[in-house]
Design a protein around this nucleic acid. Structure first.
Lengths: 209, 209, 209, 209
DNA sequence: CATGAATGAGAGTTCATTCAT
DNA sequence: GATGAATGAACTCTCATTCAT
């Protein structure tokens, strides 16, 4: 029985258990909502005792923040905006949109469903979400899109609004999926390309006229 | 000697008090979320005693359902789809979009913020929302748009998806507003027309090619 | 529309309404127990409004006391003990027992069921019951039975205990009926005579030896 | 490192605490009645916090059922009916009666007083009591008494009724004791033998004639 | 570090009682 | 006198959090 059995391994185990608990929290929060979810159920689902959750997270709120960080990390895996040129403009938009849609896996939606309701009802969490996720995401996107927007002849403010419209569309689509709107579920395959066309339409409308 | 001196007046007072309580519930739910909202606070805000709430609503859940009905009623005040013709096609889309945006008053957003988080976390409420609000709204809209969609040469399924995209965009915009995204708030005036353009772009893309 | 339409009639109406309410209280108390019974249900059952109950009874406790008085009155209709002689000794016991059993109508049991549980759990009501019903009943019975007991050669204290045993037997039988013991229900016709025999056995055992 | 250090001890502690709480419940229920008794008072009396009661009992009703089980257990400790013969017939009846009276300790009466009022006012509990206690008790007694009853020349149905009369007498005596009838309290020592005589009288009356 | 029994603050809900009409 | 909407005290029960083992 070694007393210090490899400190690195220890650390990894800690990380793994944290993720186990977060995964359980994400599942239970998304199924029942933050308040109906009990620490007991999350602990059970994670295979630990109630008290153990408090070794890894200070309190229930910290679980929520842990999920926010998780979302943050998956958001950070941003698409590679580097080599955008005039030529592959349309290709770029389409691939960007495609990449965004890839977030909408069951896991991504679950995470979103776990977090969003609480964000909408908890001002502090909302502020945190705005600062830690929304703003950085838009900043990154704006930087990446700036050259395209410019060359498309869009004025910067309007370009930014268009980015927000797209983000809104994504969020709204996730919500309709959560609600289970049947027609959207049935024809989900049509959605990504239509979304890309919409983006292109807005970004190129000036040229049309 | 009338026992109930003026029964009609009585009934009106009942309706008024119900609305007072619903208004208070909407405010408190939207500020704190369904679970953090207490009956005590709702009652106080409505200017009645705790117990009085239960004279008008069976329980806390019924307050939520009452708000759903409210939303339903404001949704039912559908735009006048009657005189759509080929000529005023663009005008129609623009005015339809405009009318939709008029829902986004402080009160409309508050109501939405009160209801949505709970819908996302409560499967039963979600199902109810889908049946009582989402489906009827789409059915109405589909009927109204059918002639336009047809004449635009869109196949019905795709046309329906486009309607859902627009709805998603609305929902997403409300959420970004709730979160308080600053750029969108600042340039909100640009949003309605951009949204209308987006719709037009999608509905006419077939003609373009 | 006469202002004072016959004061006597008025008084009778008052009495009648009081009894309506008491009847309703007896029914609801016996069905649900004192605490689960609500003033609302009693009022509805009596065909009046909630508040009206409080015109006739100060509070819920007073309803219970009203029922006690009722029980008292039906108890007071004591059998005619006057002409007991040595000769008709057995006849007397049998007819006395018989009269007692006649109390066990549905209504009598209902009243008992309404009152007893509360008496067992409410010390004040219990004391009242002891003073106003139990003691007077035993006093009356003791007086009536005294000559018989004497001539039977029973010492007074023991004679009194025997009276209490009989009372206990009655109470116990009512309880078994309330509980619905099936064999007793089925062979209820055998009970009165067996009870009378039991009494006779006890009262005459001295003579046997 | 044992997680549960000594699981057997743990289990015993659980049983002990359950009994502590039941004892407290019995006391408070009997003093105030089921509804006036509050979980707070029961918990305090048992020396635990409010919430702790719910670790051991699902809800207030379960406390009542726990008491029923308790009563059941003390009832199950049935007298030894085995060696009844014609010879010791009278001895048997007297000892049986005696054993029954031994239940009437303060604790036994308290338990009865805690349960009975609720049984009389709660139909479901009543049915449970009938099935789980009354019927088994009579079945056991009938089996034990069958040979005696037979040899006494009693027809079975009547014999069964007599058993019920005796049970009724016991119940009634407990009630008179709860109510505090003074003469019975004072001369309680006379009661057991008188009860036994009564039983004997009924069971042998056929022989007399 | 893990455990899970114990805690107790706090919420929803009921209902006896009051009183303006 | 009759009504029944309004009241708010008081109760049951839940569950995040703590801490002895």
């Amino acid at each position: 029985m070694p007393r210090k059995p490899n400190p690195e391994l220890q650390e990894k185990l800690v990380v793994i258990k944290r993720e186990q608990i977060l995964q359980a929290a994400s599942a239970v929060f998304s199924e029942k909502g933050y308040h109906r979810a009990t620490i007991k159920e999350i602990a059970t689902r994670a295979g630990v005792a109630d008290g153990t959750v408090y070794t890894y997270f200070e309190n229930k709120t910290a679980l929520m923040l842990g999920l926010l960080d998780w979302l943050n990390q998956s958001d950070q895996r941003q698409p590679d905006f580097a080599q955008v040129t005039q030529d592959n403009f349309k290709t770029f938009i389409r691939s960007y949109t495609q990449q965004r849609f890839e977030f909408m896996t069951d896991n991504g939606i679950q995470l979103f469903q776990a977090i969003l309701p609480e964000i909408l009802s908890n001002p502090e969490l909302r502020a945190l979400y705005l600062e830690k996720i929304i703003k950085p995401t838009f900043t990154t996107a704006e930087t990446a899109f700036a050259p395209i927007m410019n060359s498309a002849g869009l004025e910067p403010d309007e370009a930014k609004v268009i980015l927000r419209l797209e983000a809104a569309l994504f969020v709204g689509l996730i919500i309709l999926r959560i609600i289970g709107e049947p027609h959207l579920e049935q024809h989900w395959d049509k959605v990504p390309s239509l979304t890309a066309e919409m983006m292109l339409g807005l970004l190129t409308k000036k040229e049309q006229s």
